[in-house]
Design a protein around this nucleic acid. Structure first.
Lengths: 221, 221
DNA sequence: GTACGTTTTAAACGTTTGTTTGATTCCACA
DNA sequence: TGTGGAATCAAACAAACGTTTAAAACGTAC
């Protein structure tokens, strides 16, 4: 059979297959033969196109992150004159869509999750290029919502409470689907979850803010 | 019983060392030679005392879970006449202590975390023996706090928001320590985090409850 | 058609893996 | 003091790992 040699095609198929297999089994438990077997390329292809297994893994992380952020940027659905409440909603929704939205995004979510639990050295890259900016954005939104009477420490702990609710659905997905099989994480499910998180959080922020403005920063008994 | 050589000592040292090494590297990346080297026992000891690597891993999971729950049960510090607010606080605090309290508990937290991200088959055991009861308890507390005017679905989503804040500090610990090196997760830190989570959550629950009792279950605005 | 650089291929490389073996060491009991 | 079963040990096992190799297959230029 006449097979036109297409280096870019092999490169692409290797990258996409590797993303799926790494997401399924993790870096250590994934073998090059698994990837090449599924991608239908020779075992030597990984070393020829990427150098070694670890370099392939780093390229995979960069690739899925770029795709995920292109599809669902943190400002997803926002307009220039959005309210702080709308910005919070967009932040939460885009986070969930980016990590759980569809099959490709779940690969990104799973790989990021794995890297957080078992850092392979690429975690610093993930923090510096993604997480730091993301959290800074959330700090800005929460700071605006809480107003000037609330100190920075409270803003930070509230931001952690909000992002915590989001990552729970990422990390807890295998458990949630086992305990509540009706939860399929469709886009409608994600819309609903986003609204619940925002509702819960805005109520919390309103309570904390009104207490601060009425009684100073002292916690009520 | 007749103890020839000190078999129990080898068994114990193997179990404790394996817990640490599995927590550090994960199941797949941990080798039997790593464990035996650190435990200063022969490589054949694992197979002699536990059968194989996977059986050792399961025993490790059982062991660290038992130790963690013995040290910090979900009712940690509660009395018979505690208020729902105190029960929520005890729930949050005991969770954080159980998974982050000290070095031994962090091993439990890390292993559970790894099992959630990369189930090795022991996840079902973890859910049935631990998580299901734990979440049921939280549902009860939140249901009491919200009162009869709030539907079960809201109780569940609020419970997820609360447990989400807790697991964030477990899963996010490597990132938090990199971004905020002053956070050392001492017991004082955990007390503070617990109070922040409870404060945030009670404000949220109060807002949601008062809205429900005043305006029915319709969301405001 | 021939030569040349690139890509693919099957095979083998040296390590390392989990596990097993057979001899040796140990100690309670006779 | 000698015996026997339990525990330890060094050594080796086959299998699988990531990686390398050298040749074959391919497209492109002349």
């Amino acid at each position: 059979m006449i097979m036109k040699i297409d280096s870019a095609e092999t490169h692409r198929r290797l990258l996409e297959t590797a993303a799926i297999v790494f997401a399924e089994h993790g870096f250590a438990a994934t073998t090059i033969r698994m990837i090449c077997g599924r991608a239908k390329v020779n075992v030597a292809a990984v070393n020829y196109h990427f150098g070694n297994k670890e370099a392939l893994y780093r390229e995979v992380l960069r690739h899925v992150r770029r795709c995920a952020y292109e599809k669902y940027p943190p400002t997803y659905g926002l307009t220039a004159d959005s309210t702080p409440e709308e910005r919070l909603h967009a932040f939460v929704r885009s986070f969930l869509l980016r990590t759980l939205g569809d099959e490709q995004n779940r690969v990104f979510g799973t790989l990021t999750m794995r890297e957080m639990v078992e850092p392979t050295g690429a975690l610093d890259m993930i923090i510096e290029e993604g997480i730091r900016n993301l959290f800074g954005e959330l700090l800005g939104i929460v700071g605006t919502l809480l107003g000037a009477d609330v100190d920075a420490e409270t803003v930070e702990s509230c931001s952690r409470s909000i992002i915590g609710q989001c990552v729970f659905y990422l990390f807890g997905r295998p458990i949630i689907t086992r305990m509540s099989p009706e939860q399929k994480f469709t886009k409608d499910d994600i819309e609903k979850i986003s609204s619940e998180i925002v509702d819960f959080s805005l109520n919390a922020l309103n309570g904390i803010m009104s207490r601060a403005t009425r009684h100073g920063t002292r916690p009520s008994s």
